[in-house]
Design a protein around this nucleic acid. Structure first.
Lengths: 382, 382
DNA sequence: TTGAAAGCGCTAACAT
DNA sequence: ATGTTAGCGCTTTCAA
């Protein structure tokens, strides 16, 4: 059974190739009569366009590449899910790569090496710094994820990391904590995010009149759970250990919580904890994690829209979109440590409080209920 | 700046188009002298092949579509990561879709509607049942993820769900538990996985001479945390509540743990818990989760290899690959509940015990340490 | 409103 | 060892 092309359809409908093409694409104008005949033929032959040919001709592919460091990081997985969804809503498919922090991989992506024709690239750079990014040769639109100071040259979409960190820290201070540690500073690498979050942390301390204590800032290699766990362990060995920790992301916070639990420290009584990202898991740990929740859906939508606008390739000036974030207050800073009395739960009835961008201290103590989101039905097929 | 094609390169190097093509693809034979000239031109002009054209000509694209229900489920995210990696190792890129449990979306994928030319499709079906899958029209190779009873017609790769469930249940029974509940049965839908895991659960009970008690089997809508939390709550209301729970996946187990924690029940003392999937999070909950760990890397590699072998499209008989799984014993069934005494942790030194396929009761009590895996450097760029 | 023909950039036959 | 030519299936001028 040979592949069906426009030719076959045309001959069956007794019209020319062009007419069929018109019908398929809704271009030109066709009599209702011929259109019907063509559509009948289309259906009968089960015609499906050869996209490679179409792309060759049109020069665009309907494909958007999304390059993230690592899909196993829940934050990126959730972001990827939103990006795929947003792209689909705009009729685009997503080509997914994992850079795994490899500079060479990021460079290859930027240069469009070994890639099909793309409508654009959404990149969350890790290894590459601003100058390297600016050198980009390829002309297909590029949108960067994440904040890049002093880089007004490229389109990017981000949250205000500095403000987010300040909000988180201020929340801890508002609880009366005074030895507020930070986990997530980095010695090296062009990780602007870490720099900005540290800055926000310091800003908040300053605003509260708390003096900055270098020993309370723990450096990590990566933003992963083990790093958070190790960092927390180090902080606990200080002569005056912290009574609160701001972790630069949720993975670090979860690692820190693990260490605290193992050491028998009570959260939030002994140590209060805040993270950033609001990964789904943050709602479900015990105690559940207070965190800065960036609007991931807005992030994804903005990235795709920015991309499809055409960016520099279309002669537009570079844009920066900053999406809102909110503080989701949960048990690690507010709720009671789980106890037999609590029938806060079971998480069965009620709906997820849709708190606005302003911190609302009572919100988010409960995990969302089964029906709280128009979720699909993903079951399990290992 | 016009796009550089073979023609431009050819004229600059003073050779024919074909020769350039030969150099680029390593086909034919070229004198070292001319090759060098061509390569110089290639580099000077920064030639990049137009993949759309190449695909049109070759009829294959180097693209593999991977369709999973939902990337926000850590299990699928981890699987996706492995699939992307495996595909890259074979020189293929991955086009990622989320079906979100939508039957129509799965069907569209199967029929290749609106898709670029693909070298194949890896699908984890949710809504579609065996007959629907068999009807597949499209001829590009297809590999199914997950077990599909009575479906020897299609290539698929899976773990032995029945055995896995039996192993998990047997482990709980070996702890002396006798009221072993199950969370994850399903009323409806073609979810073969749920059926098989229930079967394994019953097998293990039977083998241990424990009578099956229907009331101990909790049904869920989806395999998500809230469902697990709600199911656990229901089980606890039984006149004789369970002393152990086998959850059909880790997400359900984490939900159940949350409910147990909130109710003040101690794990594993009061209730022991086992999951399936071994998502990364399972290592980091407190207490850490005992779970069945399928070999995800093997799963991904097998899927990609099966796909590239050509499958039915190449006239090969359908194959079923069953990848191994192991029981990863952690705190929810063995370790002490976290207490001040424990300096099992901090997770700083030592290396992750690489336990074999046989359950080793002492293994896996510690989270892996930062250096335990040749991990990349994913930091954070929200 | 519809048809004929050219060509997107590449690779595969077939020359030379 | 290299060059020439003919399409892959589609969209797009340009005519009819």
């Amino acid at each position: 059974m040979a592949r069906i092309g426009l030719r076959e359809v045309a001959s069956r409908a007794g019209v020319s190739i062009k007419t069929v093409s018109n019908v398929v694409n809704g271009t030109g104008s066709v009599t209702t009569a011929t259109r019907e005949r063509v559509e009948e033929a289309l259906a009968a032959l089960d015609y499906r366009p050869n996209l490679a040919a179409r792309h060759l001709r049109r020069g665009s592919s309907g494909l958007i590449a999304v390059a993230l460091p690592e899909l196993t990081q829940p934050y990126f997985a959730e972001l990827a899910a939103e990006l795929v969804r947003a792209a689909k809503a705009r009729g685009r498919m997503v080509l997914l790569s994992q850079t795994e922090g490899d500079e060479e991989a990021e460079r290859a992506l930027l240069e469009g090496r070994d890639l099909p024709v793309l409508d654009g690239l959404v990149l969350s750079p890790l290894a590459l710094d601003a100058p390297a990014l600016r050198e980009r040769v390829d002309r297909s639109p590029l949108v960067l994820l994440g904040e890049h100071v002093g880089d007004a040259v490229l389109d990017h979409v981000t949250v205000d990391n500095c403000a987010a960190a300040a909000d988180a820290t201020a929340h801890l201070l508002s609880l009366g904590r005074r030895r507020v540690a930070a986990i997530g500073a980095q010695d090296s690498g062009p990780n602007e995010t870490a720099v900005l979050r540290l800055e926000g942390y310091r800003d908040a301390l300053r605003a509260a009149g708390v003096t900055y204590d270098e020993r309370l800032v723990a450096t990590v290699e990566q933003f992963h759970r083990p790093d958070g766990a190790a960092a927390m362990a180090r902080l606990l060995e200080l002569p005056e250990p912290p009574d609160a920790v701001f972790c630069f992301n949720d993975a670090l916070a979860l690692g820190a919580l693990r260490t605290l639990a193992v050491r028998g420290l009570r959260v939030p009584r002994d140590v209060a904890v805040v993270g950033v990202d609001d990964i789904e898991e943050a709602t479900y740990t015990t105690p559940s994690l207070t965190t800065i929740a960036p609007d991931k859906q807005a992030l994804a939508t903005a990235a795709i829209d920015l991309l499809l606008r055409g960016g520099a390739a279309a002669g537009l000036p570079p844009q920066t979109v900053t999406v809102p974030h909110r503080l989701a207050v949960r048990e690690t800073t507010a709720g009671p440590t789980p106890s037999p009395t609590a029938d806060l739960l079971p998480p069965t009835a009620g709906s997820h409080p849709a708190d606005g961008p302003t911190p609302s201290p009572t919100a988010d103590l409960l995990p969302p209920t089964a029906g709280s989101r128009p979720a699909p039905d993903p079951e399990e097929q290992p």
